[in-house]
């Protein structure tokens, strides 16, 4: 098992950021902080998915003069996996949308109670 490899190190960074974000979500009391932890966790998930598609020593999946091309522009064995990259591409844009939505809710909550401490939102408690 080789430790010093870009794929494994990135996997470790992804796992670390997920755990960090999870810790923030569980331990923080301020709603803005919880949303921030959510953003960090999402970054970790994105790193994780991209690192699963990384192949050691291969280049980006773009066919140009930097890549050796076979017949019919085949680049098999030259490039990394394009599918996780495409998934993460959409995931980042959706992440922006969800973060903006969460912040809109946070603003609405602040307007209602003039506070962002989550302990004060106990209307459903009885």
């Amino acid at each position: 098992m080789e430790f010093f490899e870009l794929g494994k190190i990135s996997l470790l960074i992804g796992f670390g950021l997920i755990v960090l974000g999870f810790w923030g979500i569980l331990s923080q009391k301020n709603i803005i902080k919880i949303i921030l932890s959510f953003t960090i966790m999402e970054t970790g998930v994105n790193i994780l998915i991209v690192s699963l598609g990384y192949v050691k020593g291969k280049t980006a999946p773009i066919i140009d003069s930097a890549v050796e091309q076979g017949a019919n522009h085949s680049v098999l064995g030259q490039v990394v996996d394009p599918v996780p990259q495409a998934l993460v591409l959409t995931a980042i844009v959706i992440g922006f949308g969800t973060t903006a939505l969460l912040l809109a809710y946070a603003m609405k909550l602040f307007k209602a109670k003039r506070t962002l401490q989550i302990n004060n939102f106990n209307d459903l408690k009885w």
Binding site: G7, K8, V55, P61, I62, I63, G77, V80, V83
Partner: peptide, 28 residues
């Protein structure tokens, strides 16, 4: 986890035939 050394399955098909089928230089 063992890092990939070769593309497999559907990704190999995209890398092999993607340019011929779709005609886009950017496989993503």
């Amino acid at each position: 986890f063992t890092p990939k050394t070769e593309l497999d399955g559907i990704a190999a098909h995209y890398a092999d035939k993607g340019a011929a089928e779709i005609g886009a230089a950017n496989l993503v």
